[in-house]
């Protein structure tokens, strides 16, 4: 923390990164990412938005170590990414909570090497942080979608992840739960000072959450523009600053917010 170099060097640095997937024949390969450049600073909350299927999840999977880029350089915490890392936990859209474990076993999943007392203490702490105290012995099938998603976030935090990669984590939730989850996530992020890279196709969600929004183009995608959201938290969704930032991103994506601009 005290190291001045660490403070200034980005946690995530993506340089000139290209990604194509093989198609049916060699010359039909699908170009997904084209010359992507971006950085995420320590403790920053960055949202990646873009049209559905543009490759934002692909980019997140490359950064997370689940996919290898075709060309370019992706460094996380100063090192080239060679695979997933316990210090940088992915939160999946389809929910990666293990259904055969109880809530507390799930949250303690990344702590099996620690002494039992420390494990219990951390599990209890993060259970409380995601407001699931009392559900220690419940199984995921007994919980609502929002609660399951909070278990997954608590599991990542309990394991002391420095970086969270979130791939449309609230996409499957209903509207009200989604609003509540956003508020909870901001509260947790402010308390825990994590670096978060968050993928969403929901522009409003991005503007509510992020310090900075990276807007991606259609496929083959690149970063079209970087929008800094300098609004105080908790954010007022009717404030002129909020609406302006939102409409600006809509217009980058070629949509008019007032003309029934769909966020999907």
């Amino acid at each position: 923390m005290g190291n001045a170099d660490m403070e200034t060097s980005p946690v995530i640095a993506v340089r000139d990164t290209w990604m194509s997937f093989p198609g049916k024949t060699a010359d039909q390969s699908v170009h997904v990412l084209e010359r992507v450049n971006c950085e995420v600073q320590p403790g920053e909350f960055v949202c990646l938005v873009g049209p559905s299927g543009c490759g934002k999840s692909t980019l997140l999977n490359i950064v997370g170590g689940f996919l290898n880029e075709t060309r370019g350089e992706v460094r996380v915490e100063g090192e080239p990414v060679s695979g997933p890392d316990p210090g940088r936990i992915f939160v999946f859209q389809e929910n990666g909570v293990f259904p055969w474990l109880t809530v507390e076993q799930n949250i303690g999943f990344g702590l099996l090497g620690r002494p039992a007392a420390e494990r219990a203490e951390r599990v209890a702490h993060y259970l409380q942080m995601v407001s699931l105290t009392g559900f220690e012995k419940s199984y995921p099938r007994e919980l609502s979608g929002g609660m399951r998603q909070r278990v997954e976030i608590a599991r990542a935090l309990a394991a002391d992840a420095r970086v969270l990669y979130m791939d449309e984590p609230f996409g499957a939730l209903d509207f009200l739960t989604r609003l509540k989850m956003r508020a909870d996530l901001i509260r947790i992020w402010q308390a825990e000072k994590k670096t978060i890279l968050f993928v969403t196709h929901d522009i409003e969600e991005a503007v509510q959450l992020a310090d900075r929004v990276l807007v991606m183009t259609k496929r083959p995608a690149t970063i079209a523009e970087e929008v800094r959201i300098d609004l105080p938290r908790p954010r007022d969704l009717d404030s002129p600053g909020y609406l302006e930032a939102r409409d600006h991103i809509f217009s980058i994506m070629g949509m008019d917010a007032r003309g029934g601009g769909a966020t999907d």
Binding site: G64, G83, I89, G96
Partner: peptide, 9 residues
């Protein structure tokens, strides 16, 4: 997703 989560840890 279970496999990926496990590998992530």
């Amino acid at each position: 997703v279970y496999l990926r989560a496990a590998q992530n840890f």
